[in-house]
Amino acid sequence: MSFGRFVLRRSLQGIGVVWGVVTVVFALRFVTPGSPINAVAPLDASQETRQAIAAELGLDQPLYIQYGRYVFELLQGDMGRSYIRGQEVTTLVFERLPATIELAVAASIVAIVLAIPLGVISATRRNEPVDYGATLLSLGGISTPNFWLGIMLILIFAVEFNVFNTSGRGADVGDVALSAITAEPFVGTLLTWLAYITLPAIALGTYFMALITRLTRSGMLDELSKGYVQAARAKGLPRTLIRYKHALRNTLIPVITVLGLQLGTLIGGAVITEAVFSWPGLGTLVIESINQRDWPALQGSLIVIGTSFVLVNILVDVVYAYLDPEVVTD
């Protein structure tokens, strides 16, 4: 199979998965107790008023008609209108999406910066105190719920020491980049951004960091035992060169795959972290929409999250196939 056919096949599979996400998300409205009309109609609304609201929202139509109309409008980029906010869901969702992506990328950076060096050190100093410490840290990271960790970080670093902010988003990456090319104070904007994003990025990226640490360690141990490493040592090459140019390079192929997959997971899994830190992203919108029974906003958010996960998976598969042509087989 050629590389182009592989990309086409994965893209068609991704389209099928997205269609499945749309179908499941649409069906959730009808299997969940209660009616969306309750979120719109006054508490003392008469039956006639409720019927008029249902007709206006199209909820009096048969299920297959509602589904067909929803898919048709979705293909045109129309996710409907929020019951509570009165805004177009497409606008509402894509206003929140950059904050979620920014948090997911920041969490990934925190995880990568800590995990890969820890994994390498743990593998090269096996059964030493550093190895035990890295293993203990990774086990703690995998076992710790991110919402509990977020609350502890707030209590310690925001409430007790008043180093970071507890909630919100004071600045974004765009503000930092803009301040770097304008007369605005760059350092002040950067510090403001770090004050708001550091704690949620750590809380969201801790599990990711622990996973990458263990994966890097096991991969390095496997590579360091192979013959080419022994041959490089016999030739007298420096240990640092062997570890980082040869062994680590080969270890990074599965790590890259997990990085991409986990980035999609972070986008979808940021819901609880965003709620803890009141981060104005898709996760917060999902929680608010559930509490308010705002189905159009909830459906739009879940579809975008699911589509983002699928796109990241496709991108990872394409990059992996490019790096390792053996993946593309007949």
Rank of each mutant, 00 (worst) to 15 (best):
L282M: 15
V93N: 08
D175L: 08
G80V: 09
R169Y: 06
D294F: 06
P280V: 07
A104N: 13
G58E: 05
I181E: 07
L302N: 09
L263E: 10
A275C: 00
A203E: 04
A39N: 06
W193E: 08
G80H: 02
Q76A: 15
D78M: 03
F3Y: 15
L323A: 09
V229T: 13
G77K: 07
V110K: 01
V71N: 05
I109A: 06
G170S: 14
A270M: 07
S308E: 11
I65K: 01
Q87K: 11
P42Y: 12
T49P: 00
T192A: 14
L282D: 05
T91A: 13
T284M: 11
K226P: 03
V328W: 05
T307I: 13
I53D: 09
L155E: 09
L92H: 05
F186H: 10
I287V: 15
Q76S: 13
A183D: 15
M209R: 02
R69Y: 01
S122C: 08
A171K: 12
V286R: 02
M1F: 06
V176K: 12
N146R: 04
T49L: 14
V110P: 00
L194P: 05
A99V: 11
I287K: 01
L12N: 03
N291V: 03
M220V: 09
F26W: 05
S308I: 08
P98K: 14
S2D: 11
V229K: 03
R96N: 14
V130L: 11
V255R: 03
G86K: 13
R10W: 09
D294W: 08
V113H: 02
P62E: 00
A195M: 06
E48L: 13
G300H: 06
T49D: 06
V328D: 04
N162P: 00
L92C: 02
G119V: 06
S138Y: 03
E184V: 04
E88T: 10
F94V: 12
A177K: 11
I256D: 02
L74P: 07
I290A: 07
L191F: 14
G174T: 10
S301H: 05
R293K: 07
G174C: 08
Q51M: 14
Q61S: 01
R85D: 09
T273L: 05
A180H: 11
I154D: 12
V286Y: 00
L298R: 02
A275Y: 13
T182M: 03
L263G: 05
L57T: 07
V312T: 15
R169D: 00
I156E: 02
G34N: 01
M152E: 07
Y207C: 00
L215C: 01
G16T: 01
I15M: 10
Q76D: 06
I256A: 09
E274N: 04
L215P: 01
I303A: 09
L194H: 10
L12T: 10
V17L: 09
Y322A: 14
I267R: 08
P117D: 10
A297I: 08
E56W: 00
L153S: 10
W295D: 12
R50Q: 15
I197T: 13
A247R: 00
T49Y: 13
L114H: 01
L43S: 10
G300S: 09
N127Y: 12
I116G: 08
S225E: 13
G281Q: 08
S289T: 02
L263D: 09
I290N: 04
L74E: 08
I314W: 10
A111Y: 02
